[in-house]
Amino acid sequence: MIEAGVLPQNVNFALEAKYAAKFLDKHGVNYSKVEANKNGNIEVANQAALGSVVQLNCYQ
């Protein structure tokens, strides 16, 4: 795409938590786990999720 002059921006994706946890474990990053509340309220869940979202940049 870059060779064609197109540079994608704001490309987002999500990972299942288990994959993020494996990556963090591998690199010795501390984090906390929260059990899912399957009987919860969607608005409360959305607010909790917004407080947990972070930008992660990976460079090789």
Score class of each variant (00 low, 15 high):
Ala48Asp: 08
Val34Met: 14
Phe13Asp: 14
Gln9Trp: 07
Val54Met: 04
Leu7Glu: 10
Leu15Pro: 00
Gly40Ile: 07
Lys33Phe: 04
Gly5Ala: 07
Ala49Ile: 06
Ala17Gln: 05
Phe13Glu: 13
Gly40Leu: 03
Gly40His: 05
Leu24Gly: 02
Ile2Thr: 15
Leu15Phe: 03
Leu24Thr: 03
Gln60Leu: 12
Asn30Cys: 06
Lys18Leu: 10
Met1Asp: 14
Ala14Val: 04
Glu3Trp: 09
Glu16Pro: 07
Tyr31Ile: 11
Lys26Val: 00
Lys26Ala: 12
Ala36His: 05
Gln47Ser: 09
Asn30Met: 13
His27Lys: 07
Ile2Gln: 14
Tyr31Thr: 11
Lys26His: 07
Ala20Lys: 03
Ala49His: 01
Cys58Ser: 05
Asp25Cys: 06
Glu3His: 11
Asn30Lys: 15
Val6Arg: 05
Asn41Leu: 05
Met1Cys: 11
Val34Ile: 14
Ser32Asn: 15
Gly51Ile: 03
Tyr19Gln: 12
Leu7Cys: 08
Phe23Val: 05
Gly28Leu: 04
Asn57Trp: 00
Ala36Tyr: 06
His27Tyr: 13
Val11Cys: 15
Asn39Leu: 02
Asn30Ala: 15
Lys18Arg: 15
Asn39Met: 02
Gln55Trp: 00
Phe13Asn: 13
Asn46Gly: 00
Asn41Thr: 08
Ala45Tyr: 08
Asn37Arg: 13
Gly51Thr: 04
Asn39Asp: 13
Gln60Ala: 12
Glu3Thr: 12
His27Cys: 01
Ala14Met: 09
Asn37Thr: 11
Asn57Pro: 00
Ser52Phe: 06
Ala21Phe: 06
Gly28Lys: 08
Val6Ala: 06
Val53Ile: 06
Ser32Pro: 04
Ile2Val: 14
Lys18Ser: 14
Ala48Gln: 11
Tyr19Gly: 02
Gly51Tyr: 04
Ile42Arg: 10
Met1Thr: 10
Gly28Met: 06
Ala21Met: 07
Asn46Asp: 01
Val54Asn: 04
Gln55Asp: 00
Val54Phe: 03
Pro8Ala: 10
Tyr59Met: 05
Ala21Gln: 05
Tyr31Asp: 07
Val11Gln: 15
Asn57Val: 01
Glu3Pro: 04
Lys22Ser: 10
Leu7Arg: 14
Ala48Leu: 08
Gln55Ala: 00
Leu7Ser: 10
Val34Cys: 10
Asp25Met: 04
Ala14Gln: 12
Val11Pro: 12
Ile2Ser: 14
Ala45Thr: 11
Lys26Tyr: 07
Lys22Asn: 09
Val11Lys: 15
Asn39Cys: 01
Ala14Asn: 09
Glu43Val: 05
Val29Ser: 02
Ala4Val: 11
Leu7Ile: 13
Pro8Phe: 07
Ser52Cys: 09
Asn12Arg: 07
Val34Phe: 12
Ala4Asp: 12
Ala45Pro: 01
Cys58Ala: 12
Ile42Ser: 13
Phe23Arg: 02
Ala36Leu: 07
Lys26Ile: 01
Tyr19Asn: 13
